[in-house]
Design a protein around this nucleic acid. Structure first.
Lengths: 210, 210
DNA sequence: TAGATTGTTAATCGATTAACAATC
DNA sequence: TAGATTGTTAATCGATTAACAATC
């Protein structure tokens, strides 16, 4: 099987694409059919040339003078991000953050299909949240082997995150969305995307004068 | 009063600095006093030259052959990010995400001091969580005027976020940590730092082959 | 001392922005 | 048609990486 996915894009572009979807969906409610790069740019406070460059990587084309067809752009971005299907996912750690993620139904439109959650807290195990059952941490490996899971969302404390990651990789997981504070070490072909809110906070507080 | 804060740094550098603190604190537990840029880099899977460049912006210096003194680096980064003091903050929206943020005590070490929370849910109003009282949304403006608040953490749905931002800016807020999905429009001198988890998810799913 | 590491200056790389022909 | 907008190629900008002298 040949390695596909040769079509890539700069990470900053990938990160802007969901913002375009958001704006476009909002405009769509106003019954608008076509939109120019300038309009999208204004909504987001960026430059129109950047919007055109970004959209071009998804393969969508517009009409000079007219702009881009809303629906075509949305479909094109979604396909490019693989948001036109859903990857099965495990949620590891069902604290407040885990609950926030599981409760946010819109992630279903972002390729994420959480099919099981895991926690150490016996009071939570066996319960059901938003249609997803919460299992014991001990069941991760066996369930991961049984089910077809691509993504692990790790919201546990740092001290257990690496071990959990190891287990999941062994069980065949392909990608980790890491909310734990530790830098996970995994083999080359495993995708790790980490969210560290303190990084965002650093940008904010640094800009604030004392 | 002169405008200070002329010392700046690239945003990617600002975002890496908290990661260094995390690694350094971990090493400190092992009773290590000095560390080389190479060691830090290896822990994070990046290049040592990048670590040295990043650390240099904070003003800290190391000793050739020996490396950097752990404590000196931590103090230097914290000062640079203004994490050596705390900014008073309001948390607007006390859903699962708001609870996760309020419950994460380590943000206190990242310059963030949440002094009040706000929600529309009458069942939550008047309650206390992690030492912070939850008020009615209607009290935001009056309380913001009374208290010395620098930061607003907005975790509300998108449809009310802009109005809340407007009110808070009028009441004298300086920065907004925005978790709502809408792009907030505020006057030039207000700092807005947005967290959109779908952006991170886009990077992950795009890399995943179908 | 010799070797390792810092810190600075220069080179490279990649993303953003500009310019402009093509086109509806 | 004239004007607005796309899409592509080139120029600029800024971050990353390389090179290397200074130094403990």
């Amino acid at each position: 099987m040949a390695i596909q996915n040769s079509i890539s894009a700069p990470v900053p572009t990938l990160r802007r694409l969901p913002r375009y979807i958001h704006v476009l969906k909002r405009l769509k409610k106003g019954n608008i059919k076509f939109v120019s790069a300038t309009t999208i740019a204004k909504e987001l406070g960026i430059e129109s040339i950047q919007v055109r460059k970004d959209l071009s990587v998804t393969g969508v084309t517009g009409k000079p003078k007219v702009g881009f067809e809303l629906d075509k752009v949305i479909v094109s971005i979604k396909r490019f991000l693989h948001w036109d299907n859903r990857y099965n996912a495990f949620l590891i750690g069902f604290g407040a953050l885990g609950e926030a993620i599981l409760g946010y139904d819109d992630f279903k439109n972002c390729g994420l299909n959480i099919i099981a959650a895991f926690d150490v807290d016996k009071k939570k195990i066996g319960k059901n949240f938003n249609g997803v059952e919460i299992f014991s941490m001990n069941d991760i490996y066996s369930l991961a082997e049984k089910m077809e899971v691509s993504i692990a969302v790790i919201t546990t404390p740092g001290n257990v995150a690496q071990q959990i990651a190891n287990d999941l990789v062994k069980a065949g997981i392909k990608a980790i969305w890491n909310f734990s504070p530790v830098p996970l070490k995994v083999e080359e072909n495993i995708i790790v995307e980490s969210v560290h809110l303190s990084q965002s906070l650093a940008v904010l507080t640094h800009k604030l004068s004392k």
